[in-house]
C-alpha cells in the first residue's frame, strides 16, 4: 500500500440490502492523492453500486472485504461521517430539496462539520460561497434557488460541482456525471472539475462512466474496466480508447466461456 493512498479497497463484496444478490465480487482498487481513476463498464456491472457502497447508501450492504479511506475503516462509518472525513459523491440523479436554497443547504452542510457548539461565521461562509461561484463562473443568484428543484439536467450537475467546490473534499466519486448532458453542459462541468483540481492538486477523483467522451475533458491517470462486479482490466488512457472501439462484448464472451468451463 502506498503512503499516498487516499482510498484502498481490498476484496470488497456487497449485496443489495434487500436481497442476497452479489453486486460487487471481490473488488480491489487503490487510489492515490491527486489521481484521477476512471471506472468504465456496461450497465449492471456494479459501477454505481461501488460509488453508493463507498458513500454508505443504506440500500447496499458490504458483506466482506474492506475499504480504507485516508487510513480509516470506511465501512464502519456513517455516511455523514464519511462526508465529514472528506469524501464526496457527485450523484447521478441529484435529489430535489424543495424550499431549501443551495446557500442554506451548503451552510447547513458546513455547519454540520463543526464541533458541537461552534457556529459557522455567516460572513465567512458568504465570502466562500461567492468566491466559489466566481471560480466556477456561476451567477450568485443560482445559490438562491431551491436545491435541484425544477433544475435542468445540466443545472443539477453544475450544482453538484458547486457543492464540491464549497466542501473541498479529498476524494470525489463522480457517478455518471456525464449522463444526460449535452456536449456544452459536459464541457462546463468538466472545466469546473479541472479548475478545482488545479486549485487542490491532492484531490483524488474516481470517475464512473459509460462513455469515453468525458475522458476527453478530464484526463484520467488510470482507467479500469469493470464487468460483473470485478475490475477486469486496468491501464492508462489507452484502455478507454480501446474500449470505445471494442465495446464490452469481448469480456462478456470471456465470462461466458469461463462459466461454461
Amino acid at each position: 500500500m502506498s503512503d499516498d493512498a487516499i482510498l484502498t479497497i481490498e476484496a470488497l463484496k456487497a449485496d443489495v440490502a434487500a436481497e442476497e444478490l452479489g453486486i460487487l465480487k471481490a473488488l480491489d482498487l487503490q487510489v492515490c492523492k491527486g489521481e484521477v481513476h476512471a471506472i468504465m463498464g456496461p450497465n449492471g456491472s456494479g459501477k454505481s453500486t461501488l460509488a453508493k457502497v463507498l458513500m454508505g447508501h443504506p440500500g447496499y450492504r458490504p458483506t466482506s472485504g474492506r475499504a480504507l479511506f485516508d487510513g480509516s475503516d470506511l465501512l464502519a462509518m456513517e455516511p455523514h461521517d464519511r462526508a465529514r472525513a472528506g469524501m464526496f459523491l457527485a450523484f447521478q440523479y441529484p435529489v430535489e430539496v424543495p424550499g431549501v436554497s443551495i446557500a442554506n443547504f451548503l451552510r447547513t452542510s458546513m455547519q454540520s462539520r463543526l464541533k458541537e457548539g461552534d457556529d459557522l461565521d455567516l460572513f465567512d461562509f458568504q465570502d466562500l460561497l461567492l468566491d466559489r461561484m466566481k471560480l466556477l463562473e456561476m451567477e450568485p443568484s443560482f445559490a438562491e434557488r431551491s436545491v435541484n428543484d425544477g433544475f435542468s439536467g445540466g443545472e443539477k450537475k453544475r450544482n453538484e460541482i458547486l457543492q464540491m467546490a464549497v466542501l473541498k473534499p479529498k476524494l470525489v466519486l463522480m457517478d455518471e456525471t456525464d449522463s444526460g448532458l449535452d456536449i456544452d453542459a459536459l464541457k462546463v462541468v468538466a472545466s469546473g472539475v479541472n479548475t478545482l483540481r488545479q486549485e487542490d492538486p491532492d484531490m483524488a477523483i474516481v470517475l464512473i462512466t459509460h462513455y469515453q467522451r468525458i475522458l476527453d475533458y478530464i484526463t484520467p491517470d488510470v482507467v479500469h474496466v469493470m464487468v460483473d462486479g470485478r475490475i477486469v482490466r486496468s491501464g492508462g488512457p489507452e484502455v478507454a480508447l480501446w474500449l470505445e472501439e471494442e465495446g464490452y462484448a469481448s469480456w462478456r464472451e470471456a465470462e461466458e466461456q469461463a462459466a461454461a468451463i
Binding site: 458513500m55 454508505g56 447508501h57 443504506p58 440500500g59 456513517e78 455516511p79 455523514h80 464519511r82 462526508a83 465529514r84 464526496f88 459523491l89 450523484f91 441529484p94 435529489v95 430539496v97 443547504f105 451548503l106 447547513t108 452542510s109 458546513m110 454540520s112 462539520r113 457543492q163 466542501l167
Partner: peptide, 13 residues
C-alpha cells in the same frame, strides 16, 4: 431514503 442519503452525503446527520 434517497433524500436523506443525499443530505447525509454532504455531512448532515
Amino acid at each position: 431514503d434517497e433524500q436523506l442519503f443525499y443530505l447525509m452525503s454532504r455531512g448532515m446527520s
